[in-house]
């Protein structure tokens, strides 16, 4: 399977990359690890004539307890025992991404911005042409929920929920400079499977910043999928919290893999602070999260089932976090 012609650019700095993207306005993609973009290119999904490889930009590399470079390889996070100890929830999620081979190339930024997925989208040009193209690539209709306005492709990154519950920020560079925003603000709740982030055209994800409060939380990530490797999440539940004895100090829950963007459920968890969490209250929260998500039938497992498991995984993830040792 060859790739259609494109021009590859290899900027040496964030500013150069952003300038290039601005000059090539709309005619380029950033290339991080390539494990998401290149299969999509091989399937002729939304090709651009220019690729801006982020390989040679030192600033995008490296990780510390405070900062994850966008181009940091997932395998490098996985292979750092100190990081694992500090952020068990992130580590759970990283270790569940795709396969070890994908994690060897795949990056933090690539996973946060992984293309949304759908049975009708992640198919070859031949397959899509034979059915009629969809909204998300080359067409004007959605085959999942038949209409012409909204795309229902599913957000399928594992890292985002685990970072959302830690109140991570992201640093973004664009033609008009840099800005920092909460990770939760990166994803567009008002968007859809196509308009899924609030990044402006040409904006580049530079790094994830973890606040001091992120460390030492009890956290975990549970992923539903058919096989323990390869598969994208059919559901991902991340939890992080602090307990003082049995009393909840703070608790956050985020869910990915069921809608077009990953999201947190602060309205359900904020009221829990300050008191012990009874099984009844936990059950209520879990049911509410379940009721709050609206998966559609565009992945392997049926949407009703995925919702059912939301309830179970939320309960379990919270319980395991509570009982797990703090870092």
């Amino acid at each position: 399977m060859h790739l259609d012609p494109f021009e590859l650019h290899r900027p040496r700095s964030v500013e150069e990359a952003v300038r290039l993207a601005s000059e090539l306005s709309g005619q380029c993609d950033y290339l991080a690890g390539g494990t998401d973009l290149l299969p999509n290119y091989k399937m002729h999904l939304n090709l651009r004539p220019h690729l801006i490889a982020l390989e040679d930009i030192p600033e995008l590399r490296g990780h510390s307890f405070e900062r994850l470079g966008a181009m940091e390889r997932l395998a490098d996070l996985e292979g750092d025992p100190a990081f694992r100890a500090a952020y068990p929830g992130i580590q759970d999620a990283v270790g569940e991404v795709a396969t070890p081979l994908v994690r060897a190339s795949g990056t933090v930024g690539g996973n946060l911005l992984v293309e949304t997925r759908c049975f009708f989208f992640n198919q070859s040009f031949f397959w899509r042409a034979s059915l009629g193209f969809c909204l998300k690539a080359d067409g004007d209709r959605c085959h999942v929920v038949p209409q012409k306005e909204r795309c229902y492709a599913t957000f399928s990154g594992d890292l985002a929920p685990s970072l959302l519950v830690l109140d991570a920020d992201v640093e973004v560079a664009g033609p008009s400079g840099r800005r920092r925003l909460p990770l939760s603000g990166l994803y567009d709740a008002a968007g859809d499977g196509i308009r899924r982030t609030r990044l402006a055209p040409g904006e580049l994800l530079v790094a994830v910043h973890l606040p001091p409060s992120a460390r030492g939380q009890r956290a975990g990530y549970k992923k539903l999928r058919v096989r323990p490797s390869f598969d994208f999440p059919e559901l991902g539940v991340a939890v992080a919290g602090r307990w003082d004895g049995t009393r909840v100090e703070s608790l956050r829950i985020a869910v990915g893999g069921v809608e077009t963007y990953p999201r947190r459920f602060d309205a359900l968890t904020d009221p829990l602070a300050g008191a012990p969490l009874s099984e009844e209250a936990l059950g209520r929260v879990a049911s509410e999260v379940m009721r709050g998500v609206r998966p559609v039938h565009n992945t392997f497992l049926l949407p009703d089932y995925r919702r059912r498991v939301v309830e179970v995984y939320v309960r379990r993830a919270v319980r395991e976090a509570r009982e797990g040792s703090a870092a």
Binding site: G34, T35, L38, A53, L101, S105
Partner: peptide, 18 residues
């Protein structure tokens, strides 16, 4: 699978220029 600087990599998803 090949090794890239000693680490396994999927050669089908690696741009040769990189």
């Amino acid at each position: 699978t090949v090794l890239l600087d000693g680490r396994p990599a999927l050669s089908c998803l690696t741009l040769a220029r990189l």
